[in-house]
């Protein structure tokens, strides 16, 4: 019998460059910390906070018709966005969960037109109805998006 313990040999992990530069490497789980919950309450109200708690706690892999749980990278990007954005006072944004585990922030601008940001594992998909804008951006574009969509 081998005297070596499992995984005794050093393993080399290489983090994706995006994670190295933009995300906390320890933030792999989608469980929400107390600070993150405070952020959700502040930005999305009790309603949005409650919805995120349901998504993170109950929407396990296979929910619905075999759908995916929340993407940790998508969630991290959305939370970073929420840290920096200033929503218009009456924007009342909603948070939704896609079949692929992406998180969508959706509200209506001052003209009642849709603004939707979809945070996935590899990109942020932007839709702004009033500007007829549909675009896919890298995850690290959240600061620019937060500036652009503040007070919209």
């Amino acid at each position: 019998m081998s005297s070596k313990l499992p995984y005794a040999e050093p393993r080399v992990y290489k983090l994706d460059e995006d994670l190295l530069t933009n995300m906390d490497p320890g933030m792999w789980s989608t469980t929400l910390s107390a600070d993150e919950q405070d952020l959700l309450i502040r930005q999305l109200g009790d309603r949005g906070w409650g919805r995120m708690l349901l998504f993170t706690k109950y929407y396990t892999p296979g929910w619905g018709e075999g759908n995916r749980q929340i993407s940790p990278r998508g969630q991290a990007a959305m939370l970073r966005f929420l840290e920096q954005v200033s929503f218009r006072k009456d924007a009342n944004p909603s948070v939704f969960l896609s079949d692929d585990g992406e998180l969508q922030l959706a509200w209506n601008d001052t003209d009642g037109k849709a603004v939707q940001l979809l945070f996935g594992p590899n990109s942020i998909e932007v839709f702004h109805e009033a500007r007829m804008r549909e675009e896919s951006l890298p995850l690290n574009a959240y600061p620019e998006l937060a500036a652009e969509f503040s007070h919209v």
Binding site: F55, F96, S98
Partner: peptide, 25 residues
């Protein structure tokens, strides 16, 4: 159309994710 993932009942808002897919059932 199910809540909470595709419908925000309190806001009366339906998400476009209802129809984005992939391979919408």
């Amino acid at each position: 159309v199910c809540s909470p993932d595709g419908y925000d009942r309190d806001a009366g808002r339906i998400s476009s994710l209802l129809m984005t897919g992939k391979n919408t059932s």
